[in-house]
């Protein structure tokens, strides 16, 4: 069963004719070719597919695309600061918070959501905000530092 939806992704509007079973993650990767949003657990347990849906962080694997009709979506590809990286991305690069990188786009989006809500989050708040983003490589320390740095509060 298919339906038409309108979706704005990273500022571009799309009219899509979709099987109702498709998740937002399916659509981003397969229909729109936005491969920066990663599929790992496909069950909301790992956060690799985190995007901002109407400004809120969500695991896009747990969102039906048809339920997003009229929504605004921001993915890692939509984060640009002029020619350069977004401050969160830049900080992750500089602190060594990236190893295999598979969790990174989701981690970036969670951090962007946090900093959008709170300019100067405490370390505990950062840890809580990233708790839904699993990383198997870094032990998180450098990622937490990166978020602090991006918040202008590097220790």
């Amino acid at each position: 069963m298919k339906q038409v939806i309108h979706l704005t992704v990273n500022g571009d509007s799309h009219e899509l004719y979709l099987d109702t079973r498709r998740t937002l993650l399916d659509v981003l990767r397969n229909e729109l070719g936005l491969m920066g949003t990663h599929r790992s657990c496909d069950a909301g347990d790992c956060g690799a597919c985190t995007v901002l849906l109407n400004d809120l962080p969500v695991t896009s694997c747990l969102v039906l695309a048809v339920a997003c009709d009229g929504a605004q979506v921001l993915t890692v590809e939509g984060l640009r600061c002029g020619d350069g990286l977004h401050p969160v991305q830049q900080a992750l690069v500089e602190t060594g918070g990236i190893q295999c990188g598979f969790c990174t786009p989701g981690m970036v989006m969670s951090a962007v959501a946090l900093l959008g809500e709170k300019r100067r989050p405490s370390e505990a708040e950062i840890r809580a905000a990233l708790a839904g983003n699993l990383c198997r490589c870094t032990g998180y320390g450098k990622i937490i530092q990166a978020v602090q740095r991006a918040a202008g509060e590097a220790t």
Partner: peptide, 17 residues
């Protein structure tokens, strides 16, 4: 910093998937 970090930070690295 890792040479591949900017690519990974922007979601531009190509994984098997």
């Amino acid at each position: 910093p890792k040479l591949d970090a900017p690519l990974k930070a922007t979601g531009s690295a190509t994984y098997g998937h």
